[in-house]
Design a binder for these strands. Sequence first.
DNA 1: CAATGTGAAGACCTTCACAGCC
DNA 2: GGCTGTGAAGGTCTTCACATTG
Lengths: 231, 231
Amino acid sequence: MGSGSRSVGRDIPDSTVARLPLYLRALVDLAATGERTVSSEALAEATGLTSAKVRKDLSNVGSYGTRGIGYDAASLIHEIRRVLGLTQHWAILIAGVGNLGRALAHYKGFAERGFRVAALVDVDPDKVGLRLDELEIRPIGELETLAARDEIAIGVIATPATAAQDVADRMVAAGIRSILNFAPAVVTVESGVTVRRVDLATELQILAYYDQRNAESLEEPGSSRDASAGS
Amino acid sequence: MGSGSRSVGRDIPDSTVARLPLYLRALVDLAATGERTVSSEALAEATGLTSAKVRKDLSNVGSYGTRGIGYDAASLIHEIRRVLGLTQHWAILIAGVGNLGRALAHYKGFAERGFRVAALVDVDPDKVGLRLDELEIRPIGELETLAARDEIAIGVIATPATAAQDVADRMVAAGIRSILNFAPAVVTVESGVTVRRVDLATELQILAYYDQRNAESLEEPGSSRDASAGS
DNA sequence: CAATGTGAAGACCTTCACAGCC
DNA sequence: GGCTGTGAAGGTCTTCACATTG
């Protein structure tokens, strides 16, 4: 699985890639408060990680730190953006305009980070033609046309589980190679297409496990479990 | 932070715990189609994992398989439910009734898996008093009272980033020890409280990285990246 | 001297391969 | 014969500790 591919671009470990957005956000916040340089310790504080991890991660992106001083915030922000590919804007298509699809379509955080919801599709004829903000919901059959017209790079599946595979197939057929799947279903795609799954109920179930587990041992405070979801 | 704690209950690796909900769903689906027994190969197929991983994971829960036959679906479902703590029902409270909070409140998948949205709170006085289905939105000041009254086990943060820490503090003060944070912010909590973060924009940024990376190497099909969201 | 960058050690996770059992 | 369960091997990720450097 890990690929291997000795492509030219520096090879950054998956675990590091998953944390880069976190550093980016922390850096932007810190820069907004006027900080010019940031230490690994300060970044660790802001992200809830350890300073060693921060340094290892940043050294993987080919870092811009200065010993005795820290990292230049502006350079680091620029560098992480470049590595993540955020210097370009990305158009996304959302399939399934139910509660979740609507929430995603309205979500401000996407636009703030360079992602634009450029198309919405749904199977339900009653929904087709409706507008969400300025975007008109189109029938799912137009997915391929829309993907080409709007140069969609990322497809978001926000349909019920039963429709997920069909939608994924259409996305892949339309040339989309990155899919974010919110449906509680596993979709299989051809090699070369990346799928990330976000499963809301699964997250609760994992929490339930640790909750139960901590409740069982009433002794020691034990270890506080940390954020994750990524990885 | 792997804890260590030699508590009585069998110690299940985090990576396995993160996949148990996936197995559970696959098993329930397979059982619904009439399958009485399931092989690790079939489960691997249904979940997009490898059969070796499936067997290792299931052996961690103290498995109910039979050599030469496979796993008894019903027993395994029961066992995984027990391990995850899903034999009891869990009441959850959602803080922040914006687009995302509303979508979560309506989400059918929670109820289907034993989670009940029992309370909604928001700071906005215009929203307080409104009903979502049968639930009335209450002011955030009542969080502590509601948590006690409804025996809330899990708190969901669906507020803007700026409010996240305050809400988390209130949840912890109210005795909630499991938090699912959708706000794009890191919240810090005392030891003993578990926080999981689900960050929508982060997921897109990670996809952007792999998309860009795959696009750079036009040669080899390369490796298809797999679902994750867990670690 | 303060803070980065990094080998080396250690923990954790995955994959392999096959013994063991039905 | 078929499939589980698991030691052992191989990776990946994290942590440690310190040499290095502005």
